[in-house]
Design a protein around this nucleic acid. Structure first.
Lengths: 346, 346
DNA sequence: AGACCATGAGTAACCGCTCTCAGCGAGGCG
DNA sequence: CGCCTCGCTGAGAGCGGTTACTCATGGTCT
C-alpha cells in the first residue's frame, strides 16, 4: 500500500507480536491510513468515515496500541495530571485531603499523583518544582519552606494552590485552617474546666502550622494560665516519647500539636498509670478518623478535612482554565469535646 | 541568523521578563548559540568551550530557563520517574514501603510518584497502566485484581515489580509475605495459650492477601480449634465496628486481618469493658509502627516493612537496566508477642 | 609545509503525537 | 452542466528537547 513493498504483498496482515515499537505510525501503516486519521480515531473525533475508523480500531486493537502519554502531553501542552506534595504521607490528615482531591479531580478526568517530601526541608522546593513541571497543576503543602523561598518559587509553580499557608500580595489561592481559633476554643474549654497549668507539645520547629499555634497560645496565655512548651514532633512516636516528661512539671492539661501526637501521649500516659482525664486532660488537633475511638476518645479541634480536597481542586481548575479562582477559605475548626478532657484535679 | 529577520538586528539583548515562553530555542537565541549547544551545557557535557558555556548559563539564568521534563522524556525515551500503586495510602504498611522505595530510588536520582487506587477494584488496572506509561517502571500493589487481569496486564506494565502477589510462569519479580507462616505462628501461639475458639476478622473479600490468610487458617484449624470467620475489612473503623459481634459467639481469641483492624477491635473491646487479654486475646498482622504502643501492646506477625522498598527498587532497577533481577523474596514474618495475648479464660 | 587529527559547534533528524490547512471528490443548486 | 460547498483525508509543521553527523578550526607530526 505504500510506495515501497519489501515483501510480496501476501504478507499484509500484521504480526500478532509486533517487532517494532507500536506507535501511531505503525498503526497508520497497518490500517492503511495517515497518522492524522489514527489520531482522530483514537481521540473520538466523529468526522471520520465509519469504515476507516473500523480499520483503525482493529489495527490498534491487534497491535495493542496505546498512545504515548508523554508524546501526547508534549503535543497538547497538557498532561491531564495534577500533583500534590505532602510533608508526611503518614498523617491521616493529608490522606483525607488526598482522597478528596483524587475524587474531585477524577470527575474531570484528571489524575492525581502524590509526592512525599518526608518532612525534609531540603527536598521541599526541588520536589515541588519537579512535580509541578511534569503536570498541569500543583497542590502544595509545604510547611517547612520559608516564606522567602515560597515567594521566589511561586511563579514557577503556578498554577498552584497552597494548603495551610498563605502568600499575601500574590494571587496564589490558599486554603488555611484557623489554627488560632482552634487553639482558642481548646484553651477556653480547658480553662472552663479549671485548668491553669497547661503544656504544649510542640510540632516541628520550622513548621508554619506550629508557629501559628504557638503564637495563638502565647496570646491566650497572657495572665490567664501557665504555659509549658515541650519540643515534641508530629508523629505518634514523638507524642509517646515526650509524655514521660509531662510528669516532671505539674501540668494538669496537655495540648498536643496534632491528634497523632496526642494519641501517642495518651497511650504513654496510660502505660504510666496516669488516668486521663481525671489526673490529666489532653487535647489534640485535626480530628483524624480514629481519635474518636481512642480510650478515652480524644477532645480535639475538628478540621473539615473532607472539604479541603474538593475546594483545592476547584481553585486549581479555575487557575488552569484561566479564570480567577474563588477567594481563599480560612476553615474554622469545630471544638469536639470528648472523653479526654475533664475537670482539673484539685 | 535565520533566513527571515523581521526586525533590525540591534534587538539582540534579551528582555528581563520574557514575553514568549522560555524554551531551549529562546536561550539559544539570547546566548547566540545553537540549541544543541544549550542542550550540551544544560546536561553538563564538558566538551563546550568555557566562554560559550558561560554565555549559555547566564542566558538561562536570566531567562529562568528550566528544560521541559516532558520534552526531555520524549527525546530520551526515559522519564527518571517510577511509580507505585497502592490500594490504600491510609495503611502505614504501605507508607513504610513507600519510604524505603523513595529513598532507594532517590539514590539513583529517580523520583517516586504514588497513585492510590482507594481499594477500588475497578480503578486498579486502569490506574496501573496509566501510571506505568508515564514513567519508567512500576511497583504494583494491586491486591484486588484477578490473576487473569494481572496476567493480561503484565506485559504492558513491564518493567514492573509486584508486591504481595506472584505471577507464576512469568518473569515478573515479586516480593511477597509468607502470610501462611505468619498465621501459623500466631495460631500456634494462641493454641499454646489454651485458646480453642478463634475468630478471624476477614479483610476485603476480593483481596489476595485475605485469601492467603483464610487458607492458612483453614488448614491450621483442622481438628485443632474452632474457627469463626467474620467479614470485616482493612481499616481501623472496620475493626471497631465488627468488635460488637465478637461477644455474640464465645470465642476467646481474635485474629485480625491486619494491625489496623486489630487496633480498631481492641479499642472497641475496651469501650465494651472487655479486658484484653484476660477475657479475650487479640492479634494483628504487619507490625505497623504504633501497635507497640496500644494498650495493651499488640501481639502481631511482624513484617520487615523497611526491607520491601529497597528490595523492590533493586529489582526494578535491574529490569530497567536490562539485567535479570535477583530472585523473588518471600519474607517470613516474625512473631512479636506483646501484651494483647494471654491464657485463655477457663 | 602539508597531511592528519582532535576539538568544538552547528545542522538536521528524530522522539510520538496533535492539528492546521489544503486538496479532493461528491452532492446541491442555479 | 458548471460552480460552490461541504465533508473527509493526508501532508506537514510543530511541541521542546537530544544527538549523530558534518564541518571548520587550529595544533601536531614528519
Amino acid at each position: 500500500m505504500s510506495n515501497r513493498s519489501q515483501r510480496g504483498d501476501g504478507e499484509v496482515p500484521a504480526p500478532a507480536i509486533p517487532a517494532e515499537r507500536v506507535t501511531i505510525g505503525l498503526v497508520a501503516k497497518v490500517a492503511g491510513v495517515s497518522r492524522a486519521t489514527v489520531s482522530r480515531v483514537m481521540n473520538g473525533n466523529p468526522r471520520v468515515a465509519e469504515d476507516l475508523a473500523m480499520r483503525v480500531r482493529s489495527a490498534a486493537e491487534e497491535l495493542g496500541y496505546d498512545p504515548s502519554p508523554v508524546a501526547r502531553s508534549l503535543a497538547l501542552g497538557r498532561t491531564g495530571i495534577i500533583a500534590m506534595l505532602v510533608p508526611d504521607l503518614g498523617n491521616p490528615m493529608f490522606q483525607g485531603i488526598l482522597h478528596g482531591l483524587t475524587d474531585a479531580a477524577g470527575e474531570q478526568d484528571y489524575r492525581l499523583l502524590v509526592a512525599d517530601s518526608n518532612e525534609n526541608l531540603h527536598e521541599e522546593p526541588v520536589l515541588a518544582v519537579e512535580a509541578r513541571r511534569r503536570c498541569d497543576g500543583l497542590v502544595l503543602c509545604a510547611p517547612r519552606m520559608t516564606d522567602e523561598q515560597l515567594y521566589e518559587l511561586a511563579p514557577r509553580l503556578a498554577p498552584c494552590v497552597l494548603i495551610n499557608r498563605e502568600l499575601p500580595g500574590t494571587t496564589v489561592p490558599s486554603l488555611t485552617i484557623d489554627f488560632a481559633a482552634g487553639i482558642r476554643d481548646l484553651v477556653t474549654h480547658l480553662l472552663s474546666l479549671g485548668h491553669r497549668r497547661l503544656a504544649y507539645l510542640a510540632g516541628p520547629g520550622t513548621s508554619v502550622s506550629n508557629r501559628n499555634r504557638v503564637e495563638a497560645l502565647h496570646k491566650a496565655a497572657k495572665n490567664t494560665f501557665e504555659l509549658l512548651e515541650l519540643p515534641c514532633g508530629a508523629t505518634f512516636a514523638d507524642g509517646h516519647a515526650v509524655a514521660d516528661h509531662l510528669t516532671d512539671h505539674d501540668v494538669t492539661a496537655v495540648i498536643a500539636y496534632n491528634d497523632l501526637v496526642a494519641f501517642g501521649a495518651l497511650s504513654r500516659l496510660h502505660e504510666l498509670g496516669i488516668n486521663v482525664p481525671t489526673q490529666m486532660s489532653i487535647v489534640g488537633f485535626d480530628d483524624i478518623p480514629f481519635v474518636r475511638y481512642t480510650t478515652p476518645p480524644l477532645t480535639t479541634a475538628s478540621v473539615p478535612m473532607d472539604r479541603l480536597g474538593p475546594e483545592a481542586w476547584r481553585r486549581l481548575w479555575s487557575l488552569m482554565s484561566g479564570e480567577t479562582p474563588e477567594k481563599n477559605v480560612h476553615f474554622r475548626p469545630r471544638l469536639e469535646v470528648r472523653g479526654s478532657t475533664g475537670p482539673a484535679p484539685s
